[in-house]
């Protein structure tokens, strides 16, 4: 980061202006937004994420029907534009006559919620553990790092399957299982940043003023380690949504009547030849959300962390 400071110094040989706070320089937020909004992919990602979030919030008002309502005589109705489809069920109906569009809209609610909870769980746990490891150092650090090594060498989906089997099949247990599996990512990230910050002059200065360990770790160091955490949290959303959907697909996620995309996909699999829309649309939704979060995460990384800029 010292390179940035040097490049700001006037090259003409005149004395640098006295430091006057941040008055002259663009605010951090503005600088971030200019860099972020120049990236069209990131803006697209943000727009799609925003759209899905809106759909999730307004699901009960947007959905034409109740997601669990069974429409008699409308089993496996194809989408409106196919032969035999009707405008009453734009994306068709499933094998027991539930409106697919309504189920997908309510599914957005579940998937966005799942992503949020996976990230909230793994981020808070991972940041706390990573901060402890990086700040404490010594044998505590070594022990924590070995534990993350162990977790990262176990195939993630297998670990999640075992955790769900222990806790019982349920959406909330699937969230915990997937959250546990991604904790090591946050631990390593935070630890690495803490190690980089620990020796910096501001930390040493603060210690000389008598700052305690808690103040050093949480108030001084942590805020300076957050940029990569924000990026990882965004990417964690896509990981979380994807893995919980995968568990749903394996029959270990949300229980059947719930309109969860992975579970819907698993149910629709039996009708792949006769009613392919039951497979196509839930998968497209998963792909769109995951892609959008990945785009957003890439854009955030480029904007927040100039060192990683490609």
């Amino acid at each position: 980061m010292s390179g940035v400071a040097e490049s700001r110094a006037p090259s003409s040989g005149a004395l640098p202006e006295p430091f006057d706070g941040y008055g002259g320089a663009p605010s951090a937020w503005r600088e971030f937004w200019e860099s972020f909004s120049a990236n069209r992919g990131a803006l697209l990602g943000l727009a799609v994420v925003g759209a899905f979030a809106l759909v999730a919030l307004l699901a009960p008002w947007l959905a034409p029907y109740d997601p669990s309502a069974v429409h008699e005589g409308a089993f496996k109705l194809p989408p409106a534009w196919q032969e035999g489809g009707s405008m009453a069920h734009v994306l068709g109906t499933d094998d027991v006559g539930r409106d697919l569009l309504s189920r997908l809209i309510h599914g957005a609610r579940i998937s966005m919620g799942v992503g949020f909870m996976v990230v909230a769980f793994s981020m808070t746990t991972g940041v706390a553990i990573g901060l402890t490891a990086g700040y404490a150092g010594g044998w505590i650090d070594a022990a924590i790092m070995r534990m993350t090594d162990v977790m990262m060498s176990l195939p993630s989906i297998l670990l999640a399957i075992v955790v769900v089997t222990i806790l019982g099949q349920d959406l909330s247990n699937a969230i915990v299982a997937v959250g546990v599996v991604v904790v090591p990512n946050f631990v390593r990230l935070v630890r690495a940043s803490v190690l980089a910050e620990k020796g910096k002059p501001y930390v040493v200065a603060s210690r000389s003023f008598g700052a305690g360990h808690f103040r050093q770790a949480v108030v001084n160091i942590l805020p300076n380690c957050l940029a990569p955490v924000i990026v990882q949290a965004t990417l964690g959303f896509s990981d979380g949504i994807l893995n919980v959907a995968a568990l749903g697909f394996l029959g270990l996620g949300a229980k059947p009547p719930t309109a969860e995309w992975g579970t819907m996909l698993s149910d629709g699999r039996a009708y792949i030849e006769s009613a392919s829309w039951l497979v196509t649309f839930p998968g497209l939704c998963i792909l769109a959300v995951v892609l959008a979060f990945n785009l957003l995460g890439d854009g955030l990384r480029d904007a927040l962390d100039p060192r990683l800029k490609r």
Partner: peptide, 18 residues
């Protein structure tokens, strides 16, 4: 490659079969 990177492979497998 961006789409590929975000692909839910359990769905992608089904689409390939389809």
């Amino acid at each position: 490659s961006l789409v590929g990177y975000s692909m839910p492979i359990f769905w992608w497998g089904l689409i390939l079969i389809l």
